[in-house]
Simulated assay, not measured.
Amino acid sequence: MEESLCRIKNLAHASVASLEMKMQQYDRWSENFESDVSNLDYRAPKICVDHLYRVIESKGLQFTEETEIIDLAAGTGLVGKFLRDKQFIGTIDAQDGSSGMLDVAKTKNIYSNFYECILKPDAILPLPVNHYDVAILSGALSDSQVHPTCLKDILRHIEVGGIFVFSTRSNRNNLDFKKKLEIEIEKLEHDGCWEKLLVNDVKEFERATSPEEVIQAADKQQITEEYPFISGSVYCYRKLN
């Protein structure tokens, strides 16, 4: 557990000079990534997939063989795995900036197409435009990873009426980022780019790497676990234009 926490702090949460350097770190991490995030009870991929299905079922919709999903910042393919666990039979493509992570994802035989590129503001991604029925960005929205302004760039690759599901952590160290994210979300809604389908706060999102990350409740209840859970939020939006 201690080794996993050390890698997560140094590779996932630490700031770096550039996103290219971050991707080099993820290349080195790819071999241990899934065991490390399992130790952390990392739930973002499953939470995003579960909320996608909640929205689909609430709207009386169904996925078919023709449905196409892009898994953004796909890593080693955890979102793809949970989609297949839900008996999803359509096409899933994967995008990530780390070749090492994508190499692991390729071994799962889940994805059809792989796009090695970095999600950063104003980047022209080599993805088909106005194409995907669903985009999922499960765990990369945080400082030193995917910037909030990337949301609008990602919308270019979702067809009108398509669904975008994404999430972020609500731990103490991510609060400033989350405020910026929600400002961008509101701006896109105000500009008529998308409409809200579902936003949900999840109490047990993943375990903290230290008790200091946890925002205590108003009653100042003492944290008794060595690695308590932090909360997070998941967002589901429909593209309008």
Rank of each mutant, 00 (worst) to 15 (best):
C48W: 03
I8M: 08
Q145I: 07
L181C: 06
H51S: 14
K178N: 13
S170M: 15
F205K: 01
Q221Y: 00
N39P: 03
Y53F: 14
C48E: 07
N113S: 14
L83M: 15
I124S: 12
N109S: 15
K81T: 13
K239S: 09
G192M: 01
I8G: 12
I92Y: 09
K86Q: 13
I136C: 02
Q145D: 10
L188S: 08
E66H: 14
N200E: 14
D103H: 11
S18P: 09
A105Y: 04
Y42K: 07
Y53V: 02
P45F: 06
W29M: 07
A94D: 07
D122E: 14
S58K: 14
K220V: 05
I154C: 02
E3Y: 15
L188D: 06
S142W: 01
I230Y: 11
N174H: 11
S98G: 12
N200Y: 02
A73F: 04
S18R: 07
D133R: 10
A123H: 09
F114Y: 15
Q222R: 12
F63A: 01
E66P: 01
H147C: 11
D27E: 05
T168F: 03
K179P: 00
K106I: 03
L141D: 01
S15Q: 07
A94H: 13
F82A: 10
E2V: 14
A74G: 15
S35N: 13
Y26V: 06
P45W: 05
A74F: 00
Q24H: 12
I118D: 04
S35M: 08
R28F: 01
Q62N: 12
R43P: 02
L197P: 00
D153R: 03
D93A: 09
G90C: 10
A14M: 12
L11Q: 08
C193M: 04
Q222H: 09
F205P: 00
A12G: 00
L19H: 05
G192Y: 00
N241Y: 06
N174W: 03
I47Y: 09
P121I: 12
E204Q: 14
I69T: 05
V37T: 13
H190A: 09
I158W: 03
S231Q: 14
G90W: 14
K46W: 04
F88I: 03
Q62I: 10
A140Y: 08
R7G: 13
S4R: 08
G161I: 07
A94P: 13
F63D: 04
L40F: 13
